[in-house]
Amino acid sequence: MSGHPARCERAGIVVVFYRPDEACVARANRLVQAWPCVVVDNTEQRSTASALGLDARIDYVANGRNLGIATALNQGVERLVAAGCTSALLFDQDSEPSVELLDALPQTMADERMRNARVALIGPAYEDARLGGVAPFVRFGALKLRRIAPVGTELVDVDFLITSGSCVNLAVWRDIGPMEDQLFIDFVDLEWCVRAKAKGFAVLGAPALRLTHELGGEPVLVFGRSYPGHGPVRHYYLFRNATALIKRGYVPWSWKSTELVKMPVRLAIYGIFMRPRFAHLRLSLLGLWHGLIGRTGAL
């Protein structure tokens, strides 16, 4: 922590690996220059930090199998808690945080915590050039999401933030509870934010901060609009977890209504515009069924 002698904030970083390439390793090596860094590797083939070329200062956790994003994040956060960190910056392996973001986000959390001890999460606006630039922040609304342009410098009350680039207040981590392991992937961030807000904690967007982040695979253009592209297995989790969350009492009806509107549209897009069509359709419907009967965990 010698790089930040004036700080009361003791931030740490968690990065989740899955079949990382050299660029992922290089990003992690840059991150540890700013704050202590835990890399949790969900790759099926167990490796070592030195074999991957990771900086010796990185705390490397090799799971040897894919335990899902929720479990990996929980493992990393618990290591930062044990190390005495006060906040955790969470990143996907392909996120490109700037030096400015790594500096400003923990400072923003420290400043906000002084005003509001019940702040759970703060995150930047993310920028994905493939999907049309800077994405708006989101609040839930009846039948459709309310989008809030990331302008100005005041923190914005939002209903959820994507995991990557978000800064968790570790002082309230135990009160809210960990990410839900059984969701595995998709809607893990949304469920945690909804649970935090249901318990009276704040989720805040920082409109002045930016993270370059690619959401999903190659986008699919449908009637002039870009949609994030995923493989059929991801669409299984998306439908399953959305269905599972719709059944829960603490999840707001405003979000449930938007998902019920989106589901048939998604099903049509995946089944018509994404290949292989049958695999996308079959796994989406299987996810819907598993969500209804309560099956969770890995597919």
Rank of each mutant, 00 (worst) to 15 (best):
Q93R: 02
M179Q: 07
K256W: 03
S164E: 10
L89S: 09
R195P: 01
I293D: 04
L204C: 07
L105Q: 05
P276L: 08
A120P: 09
A6H: 08
A206D: 11
P150F: 11
Q33I: 12
L299H: 12
K262V: 04
R79F: 07
T48V: 01
K262C: 07
D111R: 09
R46I: 15
Q45W: 03
L131A: 04
I122P: 15
R210A: 09
V81I: 12
S47Y: 00
S254M: 09
E9R: 05
A110R: 01
E218R: 12
R266G: 13
G287H: 00
S164A: 10
L245V: 02
G68I: 14
L143T: 08
G152Y: 08
M109I: 15
L245A: 06
S87I: 02
G3W: 10
Q182V: 06
G141K: 01
V61F: 02
K256C: 14
L143F: 14
L190S: 08
G224E: 14
D55L: 02
V151H: 10
A83P: 14
L170F: 04
V38I: 09
R118S: 10
A135K: 15
A6G: 15
S87K: 05
D181L: 11
L73Q: 06
V134M: 10
T108H: 09
I58G: 00
T296A: 10
H213S: 03
H213P: 09
Y18T: 12
L143M: 11
A135S: 14
A149D: 06
P136Q: 08
I122W: 05
T163A: 10
N241F: 04
G165T: 09
I185Q: 05
M179G: 07
G205N: 13
G64W: 00
Y236L: 02
G152Q: 13
V39K: 04
M274Y: 00
Y227I: 04
S2V: 15
S98R: 11
R146F: 08
S226N: 13
I162D: 13
G205R: 02
Q33K: 14
S95K: 00
V233C: 05
V251I: 14
R65I: 06
G271P: 06
A298D: 14
S2C: 12
G231Y: 00
R225C: 11
E44A: 15
P276Y: 12
G133T: 10
V172K: 06
L281P: 10
S257T: 13
V194C: 09
S166W: 00
F137H: 06
E112R: 14
A104S: 07
F187A: 04
P150H: 05
R266A: 10
R27K: 08
V168C: 08
R195C: 00
P264N: 06
S166D: 04
D92E: 13
D94G: 07
L143D: 12
P97E: 03
V134L: 11
L245F: 00
F223T: 09
A135Q: 13
L31R: 04
F184I: 12
G297L: 05
E96D: 15
A198R: 00
L131F: 12
V194S: 03
S2R: 14
R282W: 15
D186F: 15
L73Y: 06
G177F: 10
P20D: 08
L131S: 07
I272M: 08
N29Y: 00
L283D: 12
P264A: 07
G231P: 10
G123Q: 01
A244M: 03
E127D: 15
E154L: 05
